[in-house]
């Protein structure tokens, strides 16, 4: 089971990392989401145990580890929040630059710096 989890985590992380190297902002965000989910799966995999929910445990019950689930839930919440934030930033980039291509953005940046420098040299 742990092997399966590790495999899925590795694939998710790899796909996410690949997407993050793209120039398209939204692909980067999706890559981020995949990596956050890889981390959450890793959390769940870190304490795999089969058993009943430990709410009213009887002495000879096998219990599942509640801590991993608490951690995974918290990590999901945090991942949810940062995804919303990243999407909001990406959307702001889109509305202010009319582009979601990071290469294009940096080209524009360079162009603007050159203009500024020219203004400084010949005021």
């Amino acid at each position: 089971m742990i092997l399966l989890f590790s495999g899925v985590v590795a694939v998710l992380f790899g796909t996410g990392a690949f997407l993050m190297l793209k120039a398209d902002l939204f692909r980067v965000v999706v890559g981020m989401v995949m990596i956050s989910n890889a981390a959450i799966l890793a959390l769940i995999g870190s304490g795999l145990s089969r058993g009943a929910a430990p709410i009213h445990p009887l002495p000879d019950d096998r219990l599942s580890d509640p801590l991993v689930q608490a951690m995974a839930l918290t990590a999901i919440v945090i991942g949810f929040a940062v995804t919303a934030l990243l999407l909001a930033i990406a959307y702001r980039v889109y509305t202010s630059h009319e582009s979601v291509d990071l290469d294009e953005l940096s080209r524009e940046e360079v162009r603007r710096e050159r203009e500024l420098e020219r203004e400084e040299i010949s005021p």
Binding site: M20, L25, M32, A39, A42, S46, V68, V82, L85, A90
Partner: peptide, 26 residues
Amino acid sequence: IGAAFIFAVVNLLGSFIFLISVAGTY
């Protein structure tokens, strides 16, 4: 805003790598 996006993405990646380390420690 462009620099802020890269800042956020790079640091989030760092955070999640840290989270994977926490999982490993556990």
